[in-house]
Design a protein around this nucleic acid. Sequence first.
DNA 1: AAAAACAGTGATTATTTTATCACTATGGGC
DNA 2: GCCCATAGTGATAAAATAATCACTGTTTTT
Lengths: 210, 210
Amino acid sequence: MGNLTLRQQEMLGFLQVFSQERGFWPSIREIRDHFGFNSTNAVVGHLRALENKGYLTCIAGQARSYRITYQNTETPPSDSLEVIDMPVYGNIPAGFPEGIEQGDAIDRIQVDIRSAGIRRSRRSFALKVRGDSMIDAGIFDGDMVIIEPALPNDGDIVAALIDGATTLKRFIKPRQKPPYLKAENENYPELHPVSELVIQGIARSIVRKL
Amino acid sequence: MGNLTLRQQEMLGFLQVFSQERGFWPSIREIRDHFGFNSTNAVVGHLRALENKGYLTCIAGQARSYRITYQNTETPPSDSLEVIDMPVYGNIPAGFPEGIEQGDAIDRIQVDIRSAGIRRSRRSFALKVRGDSMIDAGIFDGDMVIIEPALPNDGDIVAALIDGATTLKRFIKPRQKPPYLKAENENYPELHPVSELVIQGIARSIVRKL
DNA sequence: AAAAACAGTGATTATTTTATCACTATGGGC
DNA sequence: GCCCATAGTGATAAAATAATCACTGTTTTT
């Protein structure tokens, strides 16, 4: 399988995108127009090249009938990743983790545990971020943060219960001093615990839908 | 959406199976031969009927270009999300996206399609971000971006091939002007296409492991 | 320096493919 | 009985489309 020139990459990319977008293959004319050629022959040449290099199969004499000879990507997952299903909460009510009704979840999400950086058999869940208090850490309003219930270490981003609402903050544990929470946004003050710190879990990963 | 006759069901089923098996749509002749008709007009009649009933869209005057418009009966059960497995690339080599050797993937990730914001049956993949060119969009070095091959619109974040390497940039398409790429980092210049833009797909979501 | 691969124009031909006309026949419903 | 949707045959026109030939450059490789 030879290497492709830039033009051939473009050609193959266009074929791919077109067919996935529209559901059928482009005709040679449509390819020509897309690239702004004046002759269909320029297209034919590239298709031949792609065919010779083994990236493409054209059915001779038939319109719009190519076939990209890709290596079967659907290889059976070699060591299938373990996927777990988690509820997504808009807010984690007091009393967590016990006593959460199934209906409190606003959604569900499924990710594999390795990508999410969590351990199995923990009661992980996801939290939909509200507000911009962690914006300097790259966590935006609307992001989903996957939370693993665990004891936090210094520097971890945690879901914490403050005034009955769950917020995302960075957990700071200075030596010889009580821990406190810090927002990653210059406009927000540090939160020294007036009474008690209720940490609901450590943020392990972020999923943002663009 | 009217009911289909037996013949029409057979027709629609054949279209679906054929396109799935072969990768392109059958011509009217091929349909005729499959059903053993003696006239192509019999096929045309059925295609019209299917179109009138809203199951099919034919692009007039173009060969082999249909589109099945009805929702696949296998609607994913609402309570179990559909999870797909995607390769993770550090860089998408030439010849994208086909012809990628299995070994080119540096990892795999599994997410449910709704959380990832992608459509089923697209050959989506993930890309490990290198560099800080999208830092102002909240995409950091080391993030995994889930890419769906598609034609970009103005403002989409896309994976683009520049000098043989894949980078993440924002796609800008001004009216009446050629599109260009823009990094989301003040220290980076705009990238006006010197030759041509190879867009490998649209970024749909981000997964960051903390 | 020569050869080979790459990239393309322009024109022409052959074929595939869709579209359309006229016509036959069957069964259901008002 | 009559109308209408369904299901076809057969032929022909119109278009979209692929394939081919001859030729001009450029770049890369030998």
